[in-house]
Design a protein around this nucleic acid. Structure first.
Length: 202
DNA sequence: GCGTCGATGGCA
DNA sequence: GCCATCGACGCG
């Protein structure tokens, strides 16, 4: 489990991702978010993790996207500018972190499903609910500007990971949209949810 | 190792 | 009544 410091992406030169990074189709953004570093400042604590799994929700026509029910109090944030957090509660107990993408009035977002801990942290981030819980991200973070100081992303300055795609998880109700290959993950990460591409470790 | 199921609350 | 989930439980 020991990793070399010189290969640790956060020890290298990195930069915070700005608004323009997010202002593009969710499908494209979801793929590019694999390997990026998510940073959450919580009081004195700063937690950094490397994103290894995402899903794209591509707009009002996507029956798996919350915005398919139109503008509501909850989905309004997705119709706004890119680069803001959309956090909601599911199954009465799990907060889901999404990143609004695309143009204004284009209700797209990317769900952050799993990550690997950095900085020697030992956290289980292998699922969207586990990730928000471990990082202390809640609905209080809904609407937060990701170009701000408390919750943001950084470029990783690392080789591009090998990325695979599958249908999204838990959207069997979404008709033809349930089979679209809009889930992306790092083929070489063991932190991917639901076992991913790795057999159980002994 | 894998399928099934209950918890739990906001939303339309 | 739905869920963009998780973990516990039972199987053999």
């Amino acid at each position: 489990m020991l990793s070399s410091l010189k290969e640790d992406p956060i020890k290298r030169r990195v930069r915070k991702l700005g608004r323009s990074f997010y202002r593009r189709p969710a499908e494209n953004l979801a793929r590019d978010l694999i390997g990026k570093v998510l940073v959450h400042r919580l009081g004195q604590t700063v937690m950094r993790v490397r994103i290894v799994e995402t899903e794209a929700y591509v707009g009002e026509h996507d029956l798996a996207c919350h915005a398919s029910k139109g503008r509501t109090g909850r989905t309004e944030i997705m119709f706004g500018p890119a680069g803001f957090a959309y956090v909601y509660l599911i199954y009465g107990m799990h907060d889901m972190l999404n990143i609004v993408s695309g143009a204004v009035d284009d209700a797209e977002a990317v769900l952050i499903r799993a990550a690997e801990p950095l900085d020697g942290l030992r956290l289980d981030l292998s699922g969207p609910g586990k990730l928000t819980r471990a990082l202390g991200i809640t609905r209080a973070d809904n609407g937060v500007d990701l170009t701000g100081a408390s919750l943001f992303l950084m470029d990783d300055n690392a080789p591009r990971p090998r990325i695979l795609r599958t249908p999204r998880i838990g959207v069997d109700y979404a008709g033809e949209w349930k089979d679209k290959l809009l889930r992306f993950y790092d083929a070489d990460s063991r932190a991917v949810s639901k076992g991913g591409s790795f057999p159980a470790t002994s």
